[in-house]
Design a protein around this nucleic acid. Structure first.
Lengths: 366, 366
DNA sequence: TCCCGTCGAGTCAACGTTGTCTCAGCGTCG
DNA sequence: CGACGCTGAGACAACGTTGACTCGACGGGA
């Protein structure tokens, strides 16, 4: 087996400061000064250096720079989300990206798919690249593996779900109060038999929303009924099946509260398949595109994703700027958006409001 | 003005190989070998080193490593999309991320918002961080600024739109054929007056789709009528306005072909506002979530986003593996998905198909 | 027994950049 | 007219790591 020449793989012959310096006839350090816009360089020399740099197509090497620099900053942050393709994660990422861009910082994105192992793996991969900070929508329930990173000076902010076994800044939606508002809204429309459909109860946000549901019933002196509560996973299919089974009960619910996006959409599909979309009231947690275009429009408790993302990013950058204050948890209010499905009165008589999207703020605390 | 102590900003006191080496009582190089799993290390020593590393919470510094290493790889690629929050970009990003993950590569994401200046700026920012390669959904019409980067060994693949003034690998949807299929489908339902609503004609994909529209009419011997063609921007608002104006014409179209996502949704809104959603046929380019839940369901020409992303990522990694073959342009087929709105017959009589989503492949070439 | 090959660990320099220090030149002031 | 301060440029080392090389120990064959 003759070994051919090693694959010619491009030699990565990128010009360096050394070459720019040689061409401009100055010392490397002078090129460094020009590149970093240090003002104590003779304008004529600076111009010569810039010409040389342009001629060679020189681009500074930020990895080398960050290695040498005192602060070791890479002007890069890491963002771990559930799935960068889903609307919630995508919107969150975009908001963080916007804040980061104002500071010349880029964002490394990773999707966790609810896998705690992947969370650890990707967090490590980001840390190995020496990101300046992390924004994490966690998948796992044990973040102690980040303690040493935190001590080593990596800033991190958790979003949407609180960290466990770790003290870190956090930004969450007011899930409990949002769910409470949702159920109260259905109660106000006269419903007494309100089903709960949500994600697995092990997921903290799902648990909090479920808690809000139970609390609302309790306050209204309605007995909790296990039979109309389903913790399906976050998939349309299981939500469809669960909804169908619920509505086939001898004593079916007259209203549904679905506490997660895909569950909401599954329920919508099931209701339509059964022709019950104008009979059974339905309120979902989390807004989704085109919810207003369906008929009836789907009433939801909307999270303020923009606010979540912006707050998280700003907290992170404050820390990077040296903020040493104790960690905080910021709770972002949710908003009830009435679109029709949540205003169907008990008894099945449709009682759709004016059609606008009346918006009622609920929850929220510093 | 007394200068207080400089902000305490965490000293970034991350343990290095030096400290691990000291604790394990070996040379730095040995630590390097253990970290890189070089097999010629005595297992007992390797274990001691790993213990020391764990004890200190040591994590290798990939930026330093990539600086020193021969290939200079950072195990990071850059991805520039239109807007990481929109479903097309998000799905594309996710697919690329998946392929990258198989190789331990992370993805830096940037949104361009159709701004060519931002494209250049972010491309440079990525290159300055020495990403191994770039996946670009370009916003600009002049990519000559990347020629020198290409020569310096940065691999790049364009997606969705072809590069200009630059020779690079490209993956695109078969926009022209997709549009042709769309219009033919409307013609088959008996329409002779088919309006075109699309993004600005300066955007290459929009131009190609418009071209397909014109070509289909030409083949069908239908005279082109400027009056029912609108190049609105990619915003719902302008699409709504344009649709309303179209349908208020003395001789309004009986069918709409909308060649972009937001335009499609704008048209849907306008048709519903006018109560014409079951009268005027409507076919959109680009699928969107819940299109099947509307009534009527919105028929679309769907792009195979997964295939676009996967192909682009694989081409990029092939290049990174040393592929030196001439650049290629791969065209991905689109698919007609019938959901009702596109099957409304001319004359306004609704003629909705069985409800399933019949899917017909169109276009496609190597 | 001696030489040489092998194997495993260590030394040294370098990747591209920047912080620190030095130094030449020049203008100014006593 | 000389000392001194200031300004702007260069020399040098170092960031954390790895490639190339060195070196000592050990084992086997002559």
């Amino acid at each position: 087996m003759t070994l051919g020449e090693p694959p010619p793989r491009s030699p990565r012959n990128r010009p360096t400061m050394r070459e720019v310096a040689a061409l401009a006839g100055v010392a490397i350090k002078t090129v460094s000064r020009v590149v970093n816009e240090v003002p104590t360089v003779d304008p004529a020399i600076a111009a010569r250096v810039r010409d040389a740099a342009d001629k060679l197509g020189y681009r500074p090497n930020l990895t080398a720079s960050s290695l040498r620099r005192g602060d070791g900053r890479t002007a890069t942050i890491g963002m771990l989300v559930e799935d960068s393709a889903n609307p919630f994660s995508a919107a969150l990422t975009r908001t963080v990206e916007n804040v980061a861009r104002e500071r010349g910082v880029l964002v490394l994105v990773g999707s966790l798919d609810e896998d705690p192992a992947r969370e650890r793996e990707l967090a490590r991969a980001l840390i190995d690249r020496r990101v300046d900070g992390l924004v994490i929508v966690p998948a796992g329930r044990d973040h102690s593996y980040l303690i040493s990173e935190q001590r080593s000076g990596t800033c991190m902010v958790f979003v949407d779900r609180e960290p466990s076994l770790l003290d870190a800044d956090t930004v969450v939606s007011d899930n409990r109060r949002g769910a409470l508002t949702a159920v109260n809204h259905l109660l106000k429309a006269g419903h007494r038999r309100i089903a709960y459909l949500g994600d697995r109860a092990t997921i903290p946000t799902a648990a909090q929303r479920f808690d809000g549901y139970r609390h609302a019933l309790e306050v209204a002196h309605i007995e909790y009924d296990d039979e109309i509560v389903r913790h399906t996973g976050a998939s349309e299919e299981s939500a469809i099946a669960a909804t169908e089974r619920l509505l086939a009960l001898p004593n079916p619910p007259t209203a549904l509260f679905t506490s997660q996006n895909f569950v909401t959409i599954g329920a919508v599909r099931a209701l339509r398949a059964l022709g019950l979309q104008d009979t059974v009231a339905h309120l979902g947690f989390d807004d989704f595109p085109l919810a207003d275009l369906l008929s009836p429009g789907i009433s939801v408790i909307a999270q303020d994703v923009e606010q979540l993302g912006r707050t998280a990013a700003e907290m992170l950058f404050h820390r990077l700027d040296g903020d040493q204050s104790p960690t905080r948890t910021v709770t972002i209010a949710t908003r009830l958006i009435e679109r029709g499905s949540g205003e169907i009165a008990s008894g099945g008589s449709s009682e759709i409001t004016s059609g606008g999207s009346g918006e009622i703020t609920s929850g929220g605390s510093g």
